[in-house]
Design a protein around this nucleic acid. Structure first.
Length: 746
DNA sequence: AGCAGCGGCCTTTTT
DNA sequence: GGCCGCTGCT
């Protein structure tokens, strides 16, 4: 099929996935160069617009692909866009710069390392590394972790960096700020000494380079004649600044976003960047995409009724041609176990009846911890699932250990990796020896890793004997590190990996550490398999990829199974049927957000993002009681967001909605002091069903009577009475919630 | 140096 | 309920 755009001179040969563009979309895609702001509601095809815009620039305006930079929110989104552009244009798409802010900054920073305090093979510190480092800094400042919570200090530093403040720029309002500034300075010095940077540094350094180094600014502003940004509402100051310096000259900045989907405020994102864009890029064009191609009108209206409660937003008129659809189903579970059972039950039943396929379903929640009960329920039901995020593969201890070995070999200055692996498995280097090593390093103005390497080189010399017992303790590891370093450029990555495993006897160590539940060694082997894919591109690329994997990147789409993910991870995705669980105060909205209206508004947007992922059906669930972060059971209040749903759009009832605000001061609530009528109990009650689960002809299993066939079933007094025929026993009437009947076959 | 036992704290969301 | 850091013992 051929689509004519512009004056007829230009056309695309669209391949099989062509979806006709509506007039707004076409206007955006085929706009003349210049600043463009596309405000796109959920499901309005903004990714499609972005993709086609890139294709249009190349095919119609004959912009070489290497002059285009497109920024996405996740690596996965980048990959998908890359594929689509490629299938539209084939080899003409080569050379396009496409990736997340962090990935793109990484590329620039390695090229421009000469202008940085680190060299081009710097490593990227993740959250764990940052925490390790900050704890060390706090200790060295002779401060208490209680007075200066490492996470909090890091959060402050992160905010500063997102606002482009170096330690010297850190605002000092009181004495405490001075201490934090001092911690920031020391933390930054350690990063530099480790030849490392954290995530925020990647943006900060790039923004600084572009702002302060005219030659670099010109180079990249000249090279990238067109810049496109997805999820623009979630950019922070540093990112905006960076974009500004790249695009200020040619003004070809094409941004797509939706302020209602801004959910990363806590990470420094500021949807005011939309306003900033409008002020900085005058005479920009602005296009609204309001037609939704994803959801039914009912889902859309429900979502709008929730988001409309937020103030200070440009109201959009979202509409769809997909029809009214089914009501939003609301379910109130007795407790969190019941909630999980309900979700899995609905899915299992639809699958059994072949009304849906596995990958149609997604279950979303506010916090990762909420996935656990669902996992258990899925396993009990013998169903597969995909879990995005949470116990990320790359966060596992053994995986981090092995990556730390590789990182240290690649960059011996990495103090955090060194301290992680120097005594792994235990080889007699404890805190004391490590401290001595660090002291020696400090005196010699070297890193600990460099001292280790020097130690081996100076084996037997006076340098050695000066250090005495410490040197003797360190020597074995010093030799190992030297030989790994020596082999770095000689052997393949997997050979190097195997050598480390062998030299450290890591297999025996990790197997001894494993418990029955976790096969840690299997994870090591899995990492080795990943490494295999980087054999060609090398260790640097491998380490970079490991540092920048997003949650969405961790699992292949190919598994046909229901997906479990946080509401944050759900952005940009869509599913036939969506469950949002945990619609209770303190979960959604989360307790940490209740004190601040801005944060509460963000929780609402988060809920809105989740709701608008659904194409056909939306389920919202809550539980009357659930386990608190502590472990005790608490009576919950239904989420205030549920009150915003018009009854005409929903099915199902939430109790206590009318008296929601009576007697409870939500702000004063603390975990541990139950405010419901019932006292705490440690054991959950058996799940109680509100819906009929058993139907005639079902094959069921009873723990005592064995296998039987359901003859009849009815709901009575909130429970279900099932009549089952058991071979040799005859007909038995059973109470569903008490009899632990399992469904074998529907 | 390493380990076991205890007490305090906690978890929001992610590149 | 689980992690982490501290302590005190071997």
């Amino acid at each position: 099929m051929t689509l004519i755009i512009g004056k007829g001179r230009i056309f695309f040969i669209m391949s099989d996935f062509l979806i006709e563009l509506n007039p707004q979309q076409q206007k955006a895609v085929a706009a003349p160069p210049g600043p463009m702001l596309v405000l796109a509601g959920p499901g309005s095809g903004k990714t499609r617009v972005l993709t086609y815009r890139v294709a249009y620039l190349i095919a119609a305006l004959e912009v070489p692909a290497y002059q285009i930079m497109a920024v996405t929110f996740t690596n996965k989104a980048a990959r998908e866009m890359g594929h689509r552009v490629q299938s539209l244009l084939q080899e003409k798409a080569e050379g396009l710069w496409l990736g997340t802010f962090h990935a793109i900054c990484g590329r620039i920073l390695r090229r421009e390392a000469a202008h940085l305090p680190v060299d081009s093979n710097f490593v990227i510190f993740d959250e764990d590394d940052q925490l390790t480092l900050m704890k060390r800094v706090i200790k060295e400042h002779k401060l208490n972790e209680k007075d200066f919570n490492p996470r909090q200090v890091l959060a402050k530093i992160s905010n500063a960096k997102n606002d482009l403040q170096m330690p010297a720029d850190y605002p000092l309002l009181n004495h405490r700020d001075e201490v934090i500034q001092s911690l920031y300075t020391a933390y930054q010095a350690y990063l530099v000494a480790s030849n490392a940077m954290d995530f925020d540094d990647m943006l900060l350094y790039t923004a600084h380079l572009l702002r302060n180094q005219a030659s670099i600014q010109q180079k990249y502003a000249h090279r990238f004649k067109h810049i496109l940004v997805d999820e623009f509402q979630d950019t922070n100051q540093a990112q905006y600044n960076l974009l500004f310096h790249l695009a200020a000259h040619h003004r070809n900045l094409f941004v797509v976003g939706d302020e209602d989907q801004s959910i990363y405020r806590w990470r420094g994102a500021d949807y005011k960047n939309v306003k900033r864009f409008e002020a900085d890029f005058t005479n920009h064009e602005k296009i609204l995409l309001e037609q939704n191609y994803r959801s039914t009108q009912t889902i859309l209206d429900s979502a709008l009724s929730v988001i409309n409660e937020n103030e200070h937003r440009t109201e959009k008129v979202l509409f769809t041609e997909r029809g009214k659809g089914e009501p939003v189903i609301v379910y109130e579970a007795t407790d969190d176990h019941d909630e999980a059972a309900y979700v899995v039950d609905i899915i299992a039943r639809q699958l059994a009846q072949e009304k849906a396929k596995e990958s149609d379903f997604a279950i979303m929640y506010r916090t990762n911890a909420q996935s656990r009960l669902l996992e258990e329920a899925f396993r009990r039901a013998n169903l597969n699932y995909r879990l995005i995020g949470a116990q990320r593969f790359y966060g596992r201890r053994e995986v981090k250990d092995m990556i730390a070995f590789l990182r240290l070999i690649y960059n011996p200055k990495d103090e955090v990796s060194l301290s992680r692996v120097i005594n792994l498995p235990p080889r007699g280097i404890g805190a004391v020896t490590l401290q001595r090593l660090q002291a020696i390093a400090q005196q010699a103005d070297m890193s600990s890793g460099e001292v280790l390497l020097a130690l081996n080189a100076a084996h037997g010399s006076a340098f050695m004997s000066d250090l005495g017992a410490t040197a003797a303790r360190l020597l074995p590891f010093s030799k190992l590190l030297t030989s790994w370093r020596f082999n770095l450029d000689l052997v393949s990555l997997t050979d190097l990996f195997d050598q480390v495993l062998l030299d450290t006897d890591y297999e025996a160590y990790v197997k001894a550490e494993s418990d029955a539940l976790q096969d840690r060694w299997a994870n090591v082997l899995e990492l080795r398999a990943v490494l295999l894919e980087y054999e060609e591109v090398g260790l640097a690329a491998f380490l970079e990829a490991m540092a920048l994997v997003a949650d969405q990147d961790t699992l292949p789409d190919t598994i046909d199974a229901p997906t479990m993910l946080t509401l944050h991870a759900a952005k940009g995705l869509e599913f036939q049927q969506v469950f949002i669980i945990g619609l209770d105060e303190h979960y959604l909205p989360h307790s940490r957000s209740l004190h601040e209206p801005e944060e509460l508004a963000e929780e609402r947007r988060l809920f809105y993002v989740g709701m608008t992922r659904a194409k056909e059906r939306l389920y919202l669930t809550r539980a009357q009681r659930r386990r608190s972060p502590y472990g005790s059971y608490e009576t919950m209040l239904p989420s205030r967001f549920l009150m915003d749903l018009p009854e005409s759009l929903t099915r199902g009832r939430i109790s206590r909605m009318d008296s929601w605000h009576e007697n409870f001061d939500i702000q004063q609530f603390q975990w541990g002091q139950s405010y419901g009528s019932k006292a705490k109990s440690t054991a959950p009650k058996p799940p109680k069903r509100r819906e009929q689960r058993f139907f005639p002809e079902m094959h069921v299993q009873h723990p005592v009577y064995g296998e039987g066939v359901v003859q009849n079933s009815r709901l009575e007094f909130g429970d279900e009475t099932v009549e089952v025929y058991f071979d040799g026993l005859g007909l038995k009437a059973l109470v569903a919630s008490m009899s632990r009947l399992e469904i074998l076959e529907e």
